[in-house]
Every structure is written in structure tokens, then in C-alpha cells.
Nucleic acid binder design. Structure first.
Length: 586
RNA sequence: GCCCUGAUAGCUCAGCAGGAUAGAGCAUCCCCCUCCUAAGGGGAAGGCCAGAGGUUCGAAUCCUCUUCAGGGCGCCA
């Protein structure tokens, strides 16, 4: 409908431009919007006021000329009015709204699908948490957003590929491997002081225990040997946690040898990665690919990208390190690619990763990052620009971390200390539907506070139930219908009986669904859909409370059944996108 | 210090390619089950849209400054 009106306006303005009433050389951006007040019709257009200045006319006069170029009345339009300073208000015929029921009942699951994506391919990379421990509630938000954005974009006509970038290289993983080994030694009976910087979560014990079952005491070394001449830890006098742990990593590698260390390393990595994968699956999040960071260096891709940057003249050497002139591309300062010790930085492999994604031919890349990686955006964009790719092929969405409260107490989360609420705990206590909906309720850049006590103990108050309840209620009506041995015939000629305000409101809300999908997809804003579904459920509950559906009158009953069937279909389509179940009974 | 985010009802948040009277949900206070699920509905109350300037016919929305809050500013990942 909106599209139809848009065409009419475009024509009208073009005609006025050829007539010379509006200058030819100005860009015309026609913006139609739903009115808030039914007194203003169904759609309003402010184009007359916007163009008034450049056309050197009074808004009201211009509006009059535009309206003259529009059909006064047609199959859809009942009347057009000029109001206020120059709004053009369009009143639609009731039939226009009844048509939406047919449309929904015919299209079923495909109602709301759009072609704005035009089959373009999009790769969404999200979560990508280091495999050094289980996912916590902070990761849940990115997981929910990524998975649902993917669904939304598919509905909007994009081809979507979902990927998890596994940081399976680097010091953090070495620390994990070493932590596992130390726990293993404790299981072998060694008495030692666990490093401040080691991973202390229970899952480390689990991996160590599994290692112990598998290897028995084969990897055991005495604590005295292990800690001999190791620099002091942070909690000792003159100690430093980083120097301490690095020395321990090196000792671990020495004592175990390359092969055993790798075995230990892989065991830790795989256990945790599979745990993450399983956890996400339970949360309804599935990936097309788990991309390994280390595969980049194995295939010399990092090296290649750095060479390309060098060849392009974007690098220089300073203090023994190789720098990338990212400041030339808008970054606040230059960044190191190869450290003085000859190792690539994380940044270097991240460039290689993004180049690799681009090479795989995706039209568009979306990265969903936590707010703590915000400063990273400019430098990655700088790098891909330097390598000749268009900067806007990459979109980075920042997700603010949720600040957790337990009652009044603010929780500090740290993977290393092992003190955090896991995504699994949240899911088990709050439930998958509620947890997902909770994450998606708000704009992702918005800080999110939530009290775990509240979310867990009063989960019944979660708005997701309100929406699901609408779905279940509709099911219930159809069950009653069946129990009464009555049947439902959808007949589009009787829909005119849906003439109350409540029914009209519902029809309007239903017809907005495709617009919401397009808007949400274009803005990458999933929360628009959750707000919409809430509004639809609300309109339904209001209607349901006032009007009986299973009335004696056959025509009215059938019309109302068609209406609620359409409502249920849209609820189902929307809930499916956000990955929330559609219960038949509650 | 510099750079991002944000600041809207008591609380949690929508609204922000400028539009007509700023909206929801919780919480508070009234009212509604002889009737398809009350996990529901109706109503009341609640606001100087952080503050100050500016642009405009018109600003919660755009620009500048100030204040406050969160985050980022490593040859960490």
C-alpha cells in the first residue's frame, strides 16, 4: 500500500516538475508515514512542506497543486485532505484493509517476505568468544542478535551465511592449556599455588579430570620441578602475574614437549569449543561455519596480507616492529602488525580474516562485536580500505554488554576468575524463549541493565508470554469451534462485517507487518520486530476482551475467525524470526 | 587528556532520514470473570525529553557547548 502511494506521489511531483511548479534540479525525497491519529487519515505526507522552500511557494499552496495531480478517489483511496501547515493526509477505503486478511491467509508463512535484499549475500559473524571458557550472559546478547538478524535478513530477501571466528591461537589459549595442566598435576597429587592469571573456572577441573582419566600420571612432573626458578606471581613480593604465567607456559611446553603440549592444547580447545557449540545450539543458534584463526597462519594468509600492505606502501618499520599507517585512513594512530619479537599481532590476523571473508565473495559483511571492541572498528576498516576494498562492505554492529544485577548487587564478570553467570544457567532458569526475547527487546547499542533475581523469579512477567498467550488464545478459540462441531469458512466477501474500531485497528496493525520487516532489516534493528509483536498481541487482547468470536451469526463468526487466523499467522511468522516458540496451549 | 556510546514517567525502555497532543511495560491507585484461557481487558496518576544556546514554519529528533554515566585509548586477545 505504502509503495502504491509512493508511486502516485512520485508521478504527481514529476508532473509538477515538468510544468515548472517545482524546480527540476532538486532531489525529491518522498516520505510517507503512518499517522498516529486517525483524524489525520491513514497515511500522511509532508513533501509539500519539505519542498516549499526550494519551490519558493507556500507549503499549503504547494500541497494543493500536488493533490490536484493525485487521483481524488480510486480503488484504495477514499479521500485526500490538506491539513495543518501542509500535511497531505490520505484516507483509505475500508476495503483496502480487509484485503490484508486475504493476503495473509494466502501467503501464510511467506507473508511479510520482501525482496529488498535482492538475493545479495551477507555474512554475519557473531559471538566469536575466545574458546577459553563457557559463554556467559554477556555473549547471549550477541548470539541472539546475530541469529535473529540472520533470520530477518533471509525474510527480507538476502542470502545469509553465519560464521563463528574461533580464536584458537595466541597467548590466551596457551594460558588455558597451562591452567589445565596445573589442575591435572593437582589431581595427580601435587601441591601447588595456582597462578593469579590462570583460568580458575570449574570447567578447567573437568578438562583436567578427563585428561587424568585418559593419561593417568603420564604427564606428571613434580611441583618443585614445575615451579623451579619461576618468577614470583602478583600476590608474592615483587611479583608480576604476566611474567609469572608466561614463564609457566614456557616451562609447561619444555617439560611436556611439543607433541604432548599440543595434545593438551587441542583437548582444551576442542572441549570448550564443542561446549560452546552445544550451548549455542540449545539456545537455537546454529552456524554455517566455525572458522579457525590458526588456519589463517597455517595457510600463510596473515603473511600474505602483511606483504600486500607492505607492497602498497602502507607500512613502515620502527623500533624493530612493523607498523601499519592506519592513521592515514582515519584511525587515531598507527598500529603494529609484526611485533619486535617477530610475531604477528592479533590485529594482523584479523585483517587477514576480513580479507578472507571478502575474497569468499560476500556482498556484505556484518560483524557483531561487544562494546569493548569498539576502538577496533576504524583500524579494521582502515586496513580493508588500504587493501582496496570498499569500506562500506563491512558493517560493525556494537552490542553493549548487559550489566547484571543480583538484587542491588552489581555483578562483576570475569572469565578468568570463573565468577560469572553462564548463558546455560540463564537459559535453564529463565527459559530459552524468555531469554531470547529479553535480549532482543531493546536496541543493541543501548546499555542494558537487568536484575537476575527479577528475570528468574518473575519470569512470568516477561512480555514474551504476553505475545505467546495471544497465539495460544487463538488456538483455543479454534479448539472451541471444533468442540462445538462448527467450521470456519474464509469468505472475503463478508469481511466488511469487521467494522468496529478494534477490528479496524487490528487490520491496520496487520498491514504494517511487511513495512516493519523491511525497516528492521534495513536498519539491522531487531527490536523493531519485538515491539511490533507486542503491539499486535495487545491489539488482539483488547479486541478479544470486547468482542466474542464464536457468535451465532455465521457471517460475523466467519469474518472474525478469518481475522484472528490472520493475527495468529503474523504472530507465528514474527515469533519464528526471533526464534521464540509458538505454544498452542499455555 | 583524547575518542566512542548514552541521558526520555518512580524503574526498564520505545520514539530520533525534523512533523500535528511525547508512547509502552513494570510499580502505584480504581474498575471488569453467570461470557471463546484474568498469563487478559478498561481507566487514573505519573514528563521543563539532563542543562544552555543555535538552525527551522516546526526540534525529544539536527549542530555547538556544559554536566553526569558506561566503555575504549598496549608490540593483550
Amino acid at each position: 500500500m505504502k509503495k502504491y502511494l509512493h508511486t502516485l506521489f512520485t508521478h504527481a511531483i514529476a508532473t509538477l516538475q515538468t510544468k515548472g511548479d517545482i524546480p527540476q534540479d532538486i532531489a525529491v525525497n518522498i516520505h510517507l508515514e503512518r499517522t498516529r491519529d486517525t483524524q489525520h487519515g491513514d497515511f500522511a505526507c509532508n513533501v509539500a512542506m519539505v519542498l516549499a522552500k526550494s519551490a519558493h511557494k507556500r507549503p499549503h499552496d504547494l500541497a494543493t497543486s500536488i493533490v490536484e495531480q493525485l487521483p481524488n478517489e480510486d480503488d484504495f483511496i477514499a479521500k485526500i485532505e490538506i491539513a495543518g501547515p501542509g500535511f497531505i493526509n490520505i484516507f483509505l477505503k475500508p476495503n483496502t484493509f480487509y484485503a490484508v486478511i486475504n493476503e495473509i491467509l494466502t501467503a501464510k508463512d511467506t507473508y511479510g517476505q520482501s525482496q529488498i535484499g535482492a538475493e545479495q549475500s551477507v555474512m554475519i559473524e557473531f559471538v566469536s568468544a575466545n574458546p577459553t571458557g563457557p559463554l556467559h550472559v554477556g555473549h547471549g546478547r550477541g548470539a541472539a542478535l546475530g541469529a535473529v538478524l540472520a533470520n530477518l535478513l533471509i525474510v527480507a530477501g538476502y542470502k545469509v551465511y553465519k560464521e563463528y571466528y574461533v580464536n584458537d591461537a595466541g597467548r590466551q589459549m596457551d594460558i588455558l592449556a597451562t591452567s589445565v595442566w596445573l589442575r591435572y598435576l593437582e589431581l595427580c597429587g601435587e601441591i601447588l599455588t595456582f597462578p593469579v592469571n590462570g583460568y580458575k573456572g570449574d570447567y578447567v577441573w573437568d578438562i583436567a579430570a578427563s585428561l587424568h582419566r585418559e593419561q593417568d600420571d603420564a604427564l606428571q612432573h613434580s611441583a618443585t620441578t614445575v615451579f623451579e626458578n619461576i618468577p614470583p606471581d602478583a600476590d608474592e613480593q615483587g611479583g608480576n602475574e604476566d611474567i609469572h604465567i608466561d614463564a609457566l607456559i614456557e616451562r609447561c611446553q619444555q617439560l611436556l614437549g611439543e607433541k604432548s603440549f599440543q595434545h593438551l592444547f587441542q583437548k582444551g580447545l576442542e572441549t570448550i569449543r564443542e561446549d560452546i557449540r552445544h550451548d549455542l545450539e540449545q539456545f537455537g543458534v546454529v552456524y554455517d561455519e566455525w572458522f579457525s584463526e590458526s588456519s589463517l597462519s597455517t595457510n600463510h594468509r596473515v603473511n600474505k596480507v602483511v606483504e600486500q600492505l607492505k607492497a602498497g606502501g602502507h607500512t613502515y618499520k620502527q623500533n624493530g616492529a612493523l607498523w601499519f599507517c592506519s592513521s592515514v585512513f582515519g584511525d587515531e594512530k598507527d598500529r603494529v602488525l609484526i611485533r619486535e619479537n617477530g610475531q604477528f599481532t592479533y590485529f594482523a590476523s584479523d585483517i587477514a580474516y576480513h580479507v578472507n571473508k571478502l575474497e569468499r565473495g560476500f556482498d556484505h559483511l556484518i560483524d557483531i562485536w561487544g562494546a569493548d571492541h569498539h576502538g577496533y572498528i576504524t583500524r579494521v576498516k582502515a586496513a580493508i580500505t588500504a587493501l582496496g576494498a570498499e569500506e562500506n562492505r563491512l558493517t560493525v554492529l556494537s552490542v553493549q554488554f548487559a550489566t547484571l544485577y543480583r538484587g542491588q548487587e552489581k555483578l562483576q564478570m570475569s572469565t578468568r576468575s570463573g565468577e560469572f553467570v553462564t548463558l546455560r544457567e540463564l537459559r535453564e532458569e529463565v527459559g530459552r524463549d524468555a531469554a531470547r526475547f529479553f535480549y532482543l527487546q531493546h536496541k543493541s547499542e543501548q546499555h542494558l541493565n537487568f536484575d537476575l533475581e527479577l528475570a528468574k523469579s518473575r519470569s512470568i512477567d516477561n512480555p514474551v508470554y504476553y505475545i505467546q498467550y495471544a497465539h495460544a488464545r487463538i488456538n483455543s478459540v479454534f479448539r472451541q469451534l471444533h468442540d462445538k462441531n462448527q467450521t470456519w469458512h474464509h469468505d472475503k466477501t463478508i469481511l466488511t462485517q469487521l467494522n468496529t474500531d478494534h477490528e479496524q485497528t487490528l487490520l491496520i496493525t496487520l498491514s504494517r507487518y511487511p513495512e516493519i520487516i523491511e525497516m528492521a532489516a534495513q536498519a539491522y534493528e531487531v527490536h523493531q520486530l519485538t515491539y511490533y509483536l507486542r503491539k499486535l498481541a495487545q491489539d488482539f487482547h483488547t479486541f478479544y476482551d470486547v468482542h466474542k468470536i464464536l457468535v451465532e451469526d455465521n457471517g460475523l463468526r466467519n469474518a472474525r475467525l478469518s481475522l484472528i487466523a490472520a493475527v495468529q499467522q503474523v504472530l507465528r511468522n514474527g515469533l519464528t524470526i526471533i526464534g521464540v516458540s509458538t505454544p498452542e496451549v499455555m
